[in-house]
Structure formats: structure tokens, C-alpha cells
């Protein structure tokens, strides 16, 4: 009993105090980190528990030099077996429900086709599959924010970002802090994936199948954009940067690059 209590306390402590995650820079990153802490605590308890049991058994029940004889004739124990079917089942059920809740809070259950998109250039009857990210429609209409639409094109070995507003084409993503961004992504050649570790978000960018990713950055800074799907020899070099900046800075970037002065790319 005492051992179990120590184990649970220890596992929780590890789960809550050991931080393995990078910076958090989007609205859904703290939600993710909460899930991570819970999973890490449960995992630590289970792992340390099993590790302890195995090591303890190996030491306590080892065959000493010259010892003969056999172990106890124990072929099973139904109540015990039921117990360790039930406990994992309950844990797994809890984890499943909890992660559903997290998923919903991240905006995962929203119907992507209805979120506030204004990509008039793309065929609307197309089916669109989505990533998640807190979130466009509800939250924003509450706050009176309209999301910033960005069209993303991936190709070997670069991302291109097109802002319908101002018709800007750039290789570096600029977004204002606090405003939701809604990206519609498609690939020109093979499958790529858009990943920003600090946003805790990833979505494949697929040829012939547009996908959507929404996020709301909440920390100023420069973060890496990483291609996470093997896409050819230079896959490891397929990186870019997302610049999260204050609204003023973003607006001046926007107006500086608008229309005719398309940036580097």
C-alpha cells in the first residue's frame, strides 16, 4: 500500500515537474501541455511500477547458488486477472475521454468546411480535410476577430505562403500575435507536412487534397516551420520560419509587401 502510494506520488511529481517540451507559442499549446503532463504522469507511474516489480522479483525470487527445487505451483488467480484487466481498461477509458475533451478544446471537432474561409480562388465543392487548432469560427466571432487567411503551397523543397489580402507571396510566414490564422494548404508534387513544434501542430500537405490548419499564435518570436513527411533528398533542409509579431509590425510588413513588391520568392 505504502509502496503504491509512493509510486503514485513519485509518478505525479515526475509528470508535473519534468518538462520535456519546447516553448509554447500558440493558444492550443498550453492545452497540449496539459494533456502531456497527464499522460506523462500515468506513464511514469505504470513504467516505474512495472520496472520495480520486475527488478524486485528478479532479486527476491532469484535462485541462489546450490539451491534446488521449484517455484510455487501457481497457475493463475482469477480475481487478480480481472483486476489487471479492469484497471488498465479504466485508465485507458479515462485517457480516451480526456483526450477527446482536449481535442475538442483544440477545435478538432469543428466542421472544417464551414469555418470562416474566404479562399474564393479555390473550388468550394472540394472536400477539405483538416488539422486542428484553436480555432476559428466560434471563438473568433465571440471576440469579433476575423481570421487571417493564408494559402500555403508546398513543393520540393519549400513552403510558399500567399496572403490573399494584399496578394503577397512569401517564403517566410508572418502572422500577428493574438489573431487566428487559417491556412489552406496544398502540395504541388509529393506529400509534405507543415509542423511548428512551438505551436504543437502538424498537418500533412497533400497533392490533390487540400487540408486546413488553424492556429492562434500568442507569443512574439521566430519559430521554425519544419517539413515532417519524407519528401525527397532535401527533406531535412525543407524548413522555413514563422515570424509572430505585434499587430503594428505585422501591418507594416503587410503594407510594405503588398501587391507589386512580392518578396524574395
Amino acid at each position: 500500500m505504502l509502496a503504491v502510494a509512493c509510486l503514485i506520488a513519485g509518478g505525479l511529481w515526475i509528470g508535473l515537474h519534468v518538462n520535456l517540451l519546447p516553448d509554447s507559442a500558440s493558444v492550443n499549446a498550453p492545452i497540449y501541455d496539459e494533456l502531456f503532463k497527464v499522460l506523462f504522469s500515468i506513464g511514469a507511474i505504470l513504467f516505474l511500477g512495472m520496472l520495480g516489480l520486475v527488478i524486485y522479483s528478479l532479486i527476491r525470487f532469484r535462485r541462489r547458488d546450490g539451491e534446488t527445487g521449484e517455484g510455487i505451483a501457481l497457475e493463475g488467480n482469477l480475481p487478480l486477472e480481472i483486476l489487471w484487466t479492469a484497471i488498465p481498461a479504466v485508465v485507458v477509458l479515462f485517457v480516451g475521454l480526456y483526450s477527446y475533451d482536449i481535442y475538442e478544446r483544440m477545435g478538432g471537432m469543428e466542421n472544417m468546411n464551414q469555418s470562416s474561409h474566404d479562399h474564393s480562388s479555390m473550388k468550394t465543392e472540394q472536400r477539405i480535410w483538416g488539422g486542428i487548432g484553436a480555432s476559428t469560427s466560434q471563438l473568433d466571432s465571440q471576440r469579433g476577430l476575423n481570421p487571417l487567411p493564408v494559402e500555403v503551397t508546398a513543393m520540393q523543397f519549400a513552403f510558399l505562403f500567399h496572403y490573399p489580402q494584399g496578394d503577397i507571396l512569401t517564403g517566410e510566414l508572418h502572422v500577428p500575435i493574438g489573431r487566428p490564422v487559417s491556412m489552406k494548404m496544398e502540395s504541388n508534387d509529393v506529400i509534405h507536412a507543415f509542423w511548428v513544434p512551438e505551436f504543437r501542430l502538424k498537418q500533412d500537405v497533400i497533392p490533390g487534397q487540400p487540408t486546413i490548419l488553424n492556429f492562434t499564435p500568442n507569443k512574439v518570436g521566430k519559430y521554425p516551420i519544419i517539413c515532417a513527411e519524407l519528401c525527397g533528398p532535401y527533406h531535412g533542409g525543407m524548413r522555413s520560419t514563422v515570424v509572430v509579431e505585434e499587430p503594428d509590425a505585422f501591418d507594416s510588413w503587410l503594407s510594405k509587401n503588398s501587391k507589386q513588391t512580392a518578396s524574395e520568392t
Binding site: 522479483s57 528478479l58 527445487g69 510455487i72 486477472e81 488498465p88 485517457v95
Partner: peptide
């Protein structure tokens, strides 16, 4: 997928219980 952990877990607990009370040659 999560539920696969249940039958898998049973097997691991059963192995540990097999160790328990044995005369284990290390």
C-alpha cells in the same frame, strides 16, 4: 488503438506474476 493496451497489459502482468514466487535462474 487505446484499447489494445488492455489485452497487451494483461500479458505483461501475467509474466510478472509468473516471475513472482518462482525460483528464477538469472
Amino acid at each position: 488503438t487505446s484499447f489494445i493496451a488492455v489485452p497487451t497489459g494483461i500479458k505483461f502482468f501475467n509474466w510478472v506474476a509468473t516471475l513472482w514466487g518462482g525460483k528464477i535462474s538469472l
